[in-house]
Amino acid sequence: MNIIVCIKQVPNTTDVKIDPATNTLVRDGVESVINPFDAYAIEEAVRLKEKVGGKVTAVTMGPPQAEKALRDAIALGCDEGVLVSDRKFAGSDTWATSYTLSAAIEKIGDYGVIVCGKQASDGDTAQVGPGISAHLDIPQVTYVRKIREINEKTAVVERMTEEGFDVVETPLPCLFTVVKEINTPRMPSIKGMMRAKSAKISKWTAADIDADPAALGLDGSPTRVVKIFTPEPRKGGEMISGSAGDVAKELAELLKGEVV
């Protein structure tokens, strides 16, 4: 089975610092990494391949330097990488992003499963995965925490809900977005990293994926950012000190109105 995993390169939040003077993000020296949620998607895609055979293609839309994310994905067990990159994609919101990725996926063709992380850590929208399945008009199961059974035609999976989980059967092809609970991603291997170094990454532009220019980038994005501002930073409040009994008393007094 051919498996496609959609990934995104994001700034590593462990590196992100706030400049206390200007209260803005300091992005100098912030490393770009694979979206943490996508690590679970990659691992699940590779496990699926190990189970049912086939190959895994990692796809990302982004600037040329996003090629590194694809090589990292190959080091983790993916077979091929596709970088969809073009100035025309700049300014894409989730609508245009999911359209672009779906066009690239159509070009790859002949897939059984598409796996996405549940959301990206920089945008946190969780909209692109379902957007792709809508554009492709294939079924989706979001928040998948376990793939119970899978064969060439169908899969039975568990979808995490607020109360527990749903068991859903779906025909293939299908798109899954996966949560952290689904697996523990492996570390890259040295052999994988060496393979990744020399692996060929396909680079596709807007023309290559036969996309409608009006649906791409800023032009194809219904939403616009009209204002950016920095919220009042949350300030540390008061420190309560004393014995455990004393601080508990004082705290109970302070929270009296909030607790019923």
Partner: peptide, 15 residues
């Protein structure tokens, strides 16, 4: 919240 929650963005869909 945008870019990790440290910046707020106001967004519209004009058309």
């Amino acid at each position: 919240p945008a870019f990790g929650g440290n910046i707020m963005a106001t967004i519209t869909a004009p058309n």
